[in-house]
Nucleic acid binder design. Structure first.
Lengths: 337, 337
DNA sequence: TTGTATGCGTTATCAA
DNA sequence: TTGATAACGCATACAA
């Protein structure tokens, strides 16, 4: 069933059928109704490939993420997808893993599929190293279609970044903890991604402003499972590391800190304060529940899609959108301002 | 840059270029190399739309899920995507939400995009009610392209179901608990999806075989958050409901049960055994960590994709694949066989 | 082994 | 308001 069949049944040309399908040009109400009726009756749907061939777009957005089973990224994708679909865009999902080579490979793959834009979900798509050319794959893509980055920032034409103000939120919670009497806070970081780095900066800045110059030394970067990180803290403490507050770049790390506290016999939040990040479901699974930073993911995703639609409509939009976070105080800290 | 440009540069016809791109027919090694070099040099990639138009396929699989931010579904999608991509298929993701009308709408939408097959991730795509026609949307789709269902079963031509043996695993753990001395187990169920129903059946069967005929009454169906379900158990217990074991259809419900135990001052696992389902990350976040049923999701997804590839290759494959689960014993039960 | 010509189903331009 | 026809870029049957 194609447009010729419909035109034949209706006794008109394919051009007219095309017109009523696309609702564009002028068609007499009478023929419009007639054609509409036939389309309804036959269940005809235009062939998406042919349409794509002509228009060179299939209203499809590519979303790249390292690992969509990660709770945070999974939520992001969920919000993106729903938001995009409400604008009649399809989503091609591509999980790249964490290797740089694959990120580039899959970005190019998506480009070759003529997606209308790509969304890079997660700050790990930005190389924070010193090689000035390591983000060139993003620049190349942005030369052809809009590129949206969630939680990462590079200043490149054609790339639009939506991110939560991670540095500020970590700075702020660390400062509050210090004000409350903490003397030896620790920062647990998952990785040196763009957002990881921002968080770390916020931590160090808060320490510096309180006269602590050894900020760098109070940062622990660690991949690894909950169990491994629990062990890590146990070991560090046994080796003499003193800390009375742990701020984490992810809820999962905070869970590990909490487990450490249990095993070390330290009272939370009395002897040890713990702060997570992301306000994920995990933060509600433990006892006490985690104080955590909510970075308003759903708002960020909606904003990103909104931005994208404007870009594709040719409007002028900012290349960077910074969204403030919200501290959710639960049981692993005392009341915080 | 299209196939004509390449053919011109190479001084051959487009047919020859097409041949080397598709690696099909005979092309002299010399011209092949020449064309390959030009393709490399120009960075040419075939236009996917044009190809799709001719072949009526774009090597794309549609994945429908109710909510990809759900931990279980997110993992499933991750595995599906990686597995499919290794077979050179793209994935169009579509989150439908839980309303029947939207499931149908989006399935049809995907069909109209000419996906090569669809995967329905999650048992909630199967209507378990009495209306014999409620799954007709699946039958209609399966009439055109292969339909794979993860964790759900309907016996329809063209639909292939891969599911874990939920009934058996719940039966088995319940029986073990009873054998160990439990006298009043409870089953907490999230929903009456196909898989929820299977789990419930397993529970009731185990009770019946141990002479307990009030199985139905020992099942609590509840949506709601962790907090709400904690409250629910508190209320039920206050109202006189007695239970010494809680088997759950999801880890999240088990977390709620654990929180109930803490608040009610009951010792886990001494006074109360708790079993979760899915072996999600959540099961590692609490204290003690959850005993839970691991339904081998990654294996199931890989099998499903394997099945699909065989179906599309015209091979004869079973319409139902049942995968045994694995009980992971941790801290919320005593040692179990 | 290579080339020619046609079809795939649209959209859009130009004429009527 | 409508219709005829040319793109769009590729794969492939058929011819050479």
């Amino acid at each position: 069933m194609n447009i010729y069949d419909i035109s034949e049944k209706a006794g008109v040309s394919i051009a007219t059928v095309s017109r009523v399908i696309n609702g564009n040009a002028k068609v007499s109400e009478k023929t419009r109704q007639k054609i509409l009726a036939i389309i309804e009756e036959t269940g005809y749907t235009p062939n998406a490939f042919a349409r794509g061939l002509g228009l060179n777009t299939m209203k499809t957005i590519g979303i790249l993420c390292a690992d969509c089973s990660d709770a945070y990224l999974a939520s992001a994708i969920y919000h993106f997808e729903r938001e995009l679909r409400s604008h009649d865009y399809d989503v091609i999902l591509c999980c790249t893993g964490y290797e740089q080579a694959n990120k580039e490979k899959y970005l190019n793959l998506l480009m070759s599929k003529h997606v209308d834009a790509v969304i890079l979900a997660g700050s790990n798509f930005i190389d924070t190293g010193s090689d000035p050319d390591s983000n060139s794959y993003i620049r190349d893509a942005a030369g052809e279609i809009p590129v949206i980055i969630l939680n990462g920032f590079v200043d490149l034409p054609g790339v639009y970044c939506v991110l939560s103000d991670d540095q500020e939120s970590v700075y702020s919670v660390t400062a509050s903890l210090l004000e409350q009497g903490a003397t030896s806070p620790l920062f647990l970081s998952r990785s040196d991604s763009y957002s990881g780095l921002q968080k770390k900066k916020g931590f160090i800045r808060a320490l510096k402003e309180n006269g602590m110059k050894d900020g760098e030394k109070r940062v622990l970067s660690t991949p690894g499972t909950i169990e491994e990180n629990t062990e890590l803290l146990l070991k560090k403490a046994a080796a003499g590391l003193v800390f009375d507050a742990v701020i984490c770049s992810e809820d999962e790390l905070a869970i590990a800190a909490l487990k450490y506290a249990k095993q070390a016999g330290r009272l939370v939040p009395k002897d040890l304060s713990i702060v997570g990040f992301n306000n994920s479901k995990m933060s509600l699974c433990c006892e006490p529940e985690l104080t955590t930073i909510d970075n308003r993911l759903s708002y960020a995703c909606a904003s990103a899609v909104d931005l994208l639609m404007k870009v594709m409509a040719g409007e002028d939009v900012p290349g960077k959108l910074l969204i403030s976070s919200n501290l959710v105080v639960r049981g692993t800290t005392k009341a915080l301002k």
